[in-house]
Every structure is written in structure tokens, then in C-alpha cells.
Design a protein around this nucleic acid. Structure first.
Lengths: 184, 184
DNA sequence: AAATTTATGTCAGTCATGTTGACATATCTT
DNA sequence: AAGATATGTCAACATGACTGACATAAATTT
């Protein structure tokens, strides 16, 4: 049936050396393993939520907004734009739906009445909890046979994969700039 | 400045318990840390390639196709569909561009002349190497201070995050299903 | 007080990438 | 010869990105 050549790597690995210009260009030095594991792990990780979201008529964009609004109550629209790295227009459509359908409420800022601070409603909280539950189940399973040192290494690795130049508000909170300890 | 309430978690965490139905529904049991680290880590991980791809007039879809064609020479179209989990039409557009612009070539299968086996050209290999170089640099940096046991834990974690029911050809290769006949 | 900047919202149009369903062709299998 | 399979292509559509322009209210600066 499947007569694919599954020898790993290109037919002529040596042809790589001269082509690229970035520091790691020789095929032998590439972290193909981690690159591909990240692809598949993330694909299935978000797949959990994707499937559930269909029942709500929502997409990934809605999930991301709901998640961060729930997790960081009182988030401003501008902060959300920084975190999600999308444009105002893209966010606007999704946010409007979530507001209209009662998953999120806005409150005018106390200090600055131009701001619309965002909060999840109980309905919104339930959705986030449901999705996070699915993802937590997968994570818990994946961590099952890993000892505390291993878990620490995983956490350290993921943190070190994140850009730290010009972090947004949420990242500052995650990395505990203000001595706030992430729940762990 | 930013007068956001950055207390962690929802205003009323206890409201979660009754709402959800999946195993992990109580807010205190959620792996918010890993969930968010995965989001940011993957965002920045793929961001490396995204930026570079603009110069080629390509998007993420092109990268994914090029990557797997380069890594698994002789991949069939059907295998690529399994791996990427997209439809024939979506793949078709992207694949046609890569063929037209000389990044990929097709060869008719020897055993089965209906098959179009895909191979990266030197031009395609150079592109993959460049993008993988950027991502490898990030990974290498993130693994810098992690000992071999930690790296093993990271690898194990990522593998365990991946669905193993009905794995595709590439996953079978990654997980080293050693027998001659992985699927029938 | 007036002018400017900021935070947000919205409109119009475009693009990339995904979808479904139908259908055509060549080739392999029965 | 008939049917199944691998691939390619068509039309139509959905989502979620984008740019650029513009409007409003509120804060800030002059």
C-alpha cells in the first residue's frame, strides 16, 4: 500500500550547508524533533477546544478572548490587542459577539472613563472552564509520569521559548514582574 | 497608565464547580500555567518563520507543506492531507504554488502510477533550512540551561500531548513504530 | 478654553486559508 | 468490465486575519 520512502532527511543533506544564512543552518544541527513535536502537540492541544467550540458557534478567536478576559478580569481592549497580536477590527467582531451573547460584560473604567474594562459573565466563565478542563485533562495526562524536576524543566523550557522584549501586560503577570506568584 | 486589576483568576472562582462537566472543572485544578505558556511559546515559535515567509510571499500553510515534504521525501498527497488535517482543495492551492515556483517536484510512483510523490528541490530545501534554522535557534536557546534529564522530560511531555489514535504516516515515523507494516 | 492625544468603535474592502460538494481522469484491483 | 483509489479541479462560501479611514468621548496638554 504505502510505499513511501521513509528514510529521514533530504536526499542530499549536504546541499544545505551553503544555502542558509542563519546561525543554525546545517541539517545535522536542526532540532527537527522538537520542531515537529511542537507542531503536533499544539495541533492536538487546540483541537480539544476547537471541537467543543463548534457547539457554541464559536471559533478559536472567541476562545482566546474569553480565556484572557476570564483570567485577567478588567482587561482593557488595548491590552487584549497586545496579547492576541491582532488588529482592533479583528478583535471587534469577536468581542461584539461575546458581548451580545452575554459571555462578557464591559464596565467603564473608574479612573479613565474612556476605557472599557472586560469581565467574563458566569456564562463566559462556564465556557472557559469547560475548555480549560479539556486542555487540563490532556496536560495532566501528559505530565502523569514526569517527576517534579521534569515538570520544572518543561515550565522553564516553555518560558524560555517566549519573547521577552516588549512583553504585554499578561506576560508581565505570568513572568511575575511584580513579585506575584503564578498559581502553580 | 494601566490601572488594570491584575489579581489572578475570576472574581468568583467558586462559581466554576457546578458549571462544567469534564473531569477537570474546578478552577483550582486547571493547569492555567501550562495552557498559557503553550499559547505564548507557540505564538512566538511560529512567529519566527512567519516573518521570514513574508519575504517569499508565502504563509504558514506553505511552510507546513515544505517542511514535511523536505523531511519525508516521497510523501504522497494523501499522506500530507493526513498530517496537515486540511482538505484537498486547501492543500491544492498551496501545493500548486510551490510546484509552479520550483520549491517542490512531483514524481510518479513506481509501484502505483496514480501517486504523485513529493520531493523538495534545492530551492525548497534552502527555504526549509532557513526557517528551521530560526526555530532551532530559539529551541537551542530555550534548552540552554536544561540538563539531559530535563530535555528528556520535555520530549516525553510533548509526545504525550499528541493523540495516538489513528496516527498518520509521519507520526508513525516520529514515534518509531518499528515494524514493517505500521498500517495493514 | 482650545487643541491635541488617547481609547474605543465602526465602515469598506481585501487576503489567506480553511470548508463542502461535485465532478473528471488515470490507474489499480477485483 | 466494473469498481475503487489517488489525484486534480471547479464553484461557492466561512472565518479570521489585514489596511486605511473616520467618528466619538474623554483625558491631557498647551
Amino acid at each position: 500500500m504505502t510505499d513511501i520512502n521513509f528514510s529521514r532527511g533530504p536526499a542530499d543533506p549536504d546541499s544545505q550547508g551553503a544555502a542558509g544564512t542563519s546561525p543554525a543552518t546545517r541539517a545535522g544541527e536542526m532540532r527537527w524533533d522538537i520542531i515537529e513535536l511542537l507542531f503536533f502537540a499544539y495541533r492536538d492541544f487546540v483541537g480539544d477546544a476547537d471541537h467543543e467550540l463548534e457547539a457554541f458557534g464559536f471559533g478559536r478567536a472567541h476562545h482566546r478572548v474569553m480565556h484572557f478576559v476570564y483570567r485577567y478580569p478588567g482587561l482593557k481592549v488595548a491590552d487584549l490587542l497586545d496579547v492576541l497580536r491582532i488588529t482592533k477590527q479583528s478583535l471587534g467582531r469577536v468581542l461584539k459577539q461575546l458581548l451580545d451573547e452575554g459571555y462578557i460584560v464591559q464596565k467603564t473604567g473608574n479612573n479613565d472613563r474612556r476605557q472599557r474594562l472586560l469581565y467574563a459573565t458566569p456564562k463566559g466563565e462556564a465556557l472557559v472552564a469547560k475548555l480549560a478542563g479539556l486542555q487540563t485533562d490532556r496536560i495532566t495526562h501528559a505530565l502523569r509520569d514526569i517527576n517534579p524536576e521534569g515538570v520544572a524543566a518543561i515550565s522553564q523550557f516553555l518560558r524560555a521559548m517566549i519573547d521577552r522584549d516588549d512583553p504585554d501586560k499578561v506576560l508581565e503577570a505570568i513572568f511575575g514582574i511584580g513579585s506575584k506568584k503564578p498559581r502553580e
